[in-house]
C-alpha cells in the first residue's frame, strides 16, 4: 500500500509541474480574454513556437560556444523572450486590430485559423524530422524519503511560481498593470480616463506571447520529441481555465494544477490498478470540462454573469 501512496505522491508532484504549464498557458489566454474579450485558441501554438525558437537558439549558441552549458540556456531564454515581444506585437496587428468589434464567432475562427497557420508553418520550416529537445538539467533527480523527484519538474514549478509572482506584482502595483485592469473592466471608460487603450491591448498580447513562449521553453524538455502535436496541449489548458472560472487569474492557476494532477495520476498509478482508466486517460480533461460546464459553468472562482438586455 505504501508503494501505491509513494507512487501517488511522486506523480502528484510531476502533475503539479504539468499543471503549472497548463496554468501558464491558461494565464496567457486569460490575460487576453480579460483585456480584449478575444478568446485566443492559438495559445498552444504560441507555446509550440516558443519551444522551437528556444531549441533553435540553444543549438545556435551551443554551436558558437562549442558545447552546452548554463549560459547557453540563459542566453537562449533571453533571445526567446525578445522574440516573444516581437511576436506579440505582430499578433496584435494581425488578429486584434482588424477584428476589434466583430462577433465572437469570427474572432474564435480567426484565432483558430491563426493556430493552424502557425502549426503548419512551423512544421514547414522545421522540416519533417522530429527534434530531440535538450534539458538544462539532464535526467538528474532528487530523492526525498523514497520519493523520486526530477530536478526539471522542480525547476518548472519554481519558475512558474516566479513568473506568476511577477504578474501578480505587475497587475496590482504598477501603473500599466492598473491601466490594464481598468481596460478590462470597461474599455470605453478607460479611454475617457486617458488610458491609451490601443497600447494596452498591444501590451496584453505581448505579455500573452511571453507567457506562452516561456511555457513552451519549460515544457519542451519534458517531451520525448519536439513536434507540432505539442500544440494540442494548449487546447487542454482550456478545460483548466474553465475549471477555475474563465477570466479569473487565480482560477486559471488552480484549475491548471488540479487538471495536471488528475491527468498524471490517472495516467500513472491508477491505470495499473484499474484497467478501464487506460482507455480514457487522454480524454479525461475533456470529460472534466463537460462535467464542469454542466454542473457549474462559472467554475470554481468565476462570478456568475448577469445577462444584460
Amino acid at each position: 500500500m505504501s508503494d501505491l501512496l509513494s507512487g501517488l505522491i511522486q506523480e502528484s508532484i510531476s502533475g503539479i509541474a504539468l499543471g503549472c504549464i497548463y496554468a501558464l498557458i491558461a494565464l496567457g489566454f486569460t490575460l487576453i480574454y480579460k483585456a480584449t474579450e478575444v478568446v485566443n485558441f492559438a495559445q498552444g501554438e504560441i507555446m509550440m513556437v516558443g519551444a522551437y525558437v528556444n531549441f533553435f537558439f540553444v543549438t545556435q549558441f551551443a554551436g558558437m560556444v562549442g558545447g552546452l552549458n548554463g549560459w547557453v540556456f540563459l542566453a537562449a531564454l533571453f533571445c526567446s523572450t525578445i522574440f516573444a515581444v516581437l511576436f506579440g506585437i505582430v499578433l496584435d496587428l494581425i488578429i486584434s486590430r482588424p477584428l476589434k468589434d466583430e462577433p465572437v464567432f469570427s474572432i474564435i475562427m480567426a484565432t483558430i485559423s491563426l493556430a493552424i497557420i502557425l502549426r503548419s508553418l512551423t512544421a514547414m520550416i522545421a522540416g519533417p524530422i522530429s527534434l530531440v529537445p535538450v534539458s538544462p538539467f539532464g535526467d538528474s533527480t532528487i530523492k526525498v524519503g523514497g520519493i523520486v523527484i526530477s530536478v526539471l519538474d522542480l525547476a518548472i514549478i519554481i519558475s512558474a511560481i516566479i513568473l506568476m509572482g511577477i504578474f501578480f506584482f505587475f497587475f496590482n502595483k504598477t501603473r500599466w498593470g492598473i491601466a490594464m485592469k481598468a481596460t478590462s473592466e470597461d474599455s470605453e471608460a478607460a479611454q475617457l480616463m486617458g488610458i491609451p487603450v490601443k497600447n494596452v491591448y498591444r501590451m496584453v498580447w505581448v505579455f500573452a506571447a511571453i507567457v506562452g513562449i516561456i511555457s513552451g521553453v519549460l515544457l519542451a524538455p519534458r517531451m520525448a520529441l519536439l513536434d507540432t502535436t505539442m500544440s494540442y496541449l494548449g487546447l487542454k489548458a482550456f478545460p483548466a481555465a474553465i475549471l477555475g472560472g474563465f477570466g479569473s487569474i487565480p482560477g486559471a492557476v488552480v484549475g491548471g494544477i488540479i487538471l495536471g494532477i488528475i491527468e498524471t495520476v490517472s495516467m500513472g498509478t491508477l491505470s495499473f490498478h484499474f484497467e478501464w482508466i487506460k482507455e480514457i486517460n487522454d480524454i479525461i480533461v475533456w470529460i472534466v470540462l463537460i462535467a464542469v460546464l454542466m454542473i457549474r459553468p462559472d467554475g470554481l472562482f468565476g462570478i456568475a454573469k448577469v445577462k444584460r438586455v
Binding site: 494581425i94 477584428l99 491563426l114 493552424i116 497557420i117 512544421a123 514547414m124 519533417p128
Partner: peptide
C-alpha cells in the same frame, strides 16, 4: 525550393484563406 511534408502546406493555405475571409469578406 523547400522540403514539404504532405498536408502542411495545404493546412497553411486553408488557415490563410480563412483568416483573409474573416478579416476582409465576412
Amino acid at each position: 525550393f523547400v522540403h514539404l511534408e504532405a498536408g502542411d502546406f495545404q493546412v497553411f493555405i486553408f488557415g490563410l484563406i480563412m483568416l483573409i475571409f474573416i478579416i476582409f469578406q465576412p
